[in-house]
Amino acid sequence: MSDCPHEPIVADALAKGDLPEDLRVHLAGCAVCAEVHSVAGHMLQLADGLAEEPQPSAASMWWRLNLRMRREKARRAEMPLIWMGRVCYVAIALVAALVAASLPVPARPVAAIGLAALGAVVLPVAVTLWGWSRSKT
């Protein structure tokens, strides 16, 4: 079946519930537009049927959406603090492991340098994350 330039006009007129006389005349002679008229009509009937089901009101939807957005914002703000905590726990675990290993005397300077380097990394990261979380709240 070939196309007809009146197709969108038929669909639009049907959706508005206003089918002018000249379009009705055209429908009688155009198989394409007659099919559009039939199918579009049934689609609108389907949509009307489905619209009979109750739906949430605009006010309740707005309230729920805002609540979700606030909760999501709070969760995002907490994430840096959570990660900061995790980094600190790892650092503490490493320190505890080193101490518990009872390093021999010659290795102590090496351990001291390692701990200082770890502190130099962990401390700025923790401060940055804390500052970022503050800026998000």
Binding site: P8, A11, D12, V36, V39, M43, A47
Partner: peptide, 11 residues
Amino acid sequence: VLWMAYVECFD
């Protein structure tokens, strides 16, 4: 496609 064309009248 049918819904968007004939219920929402999208082009």
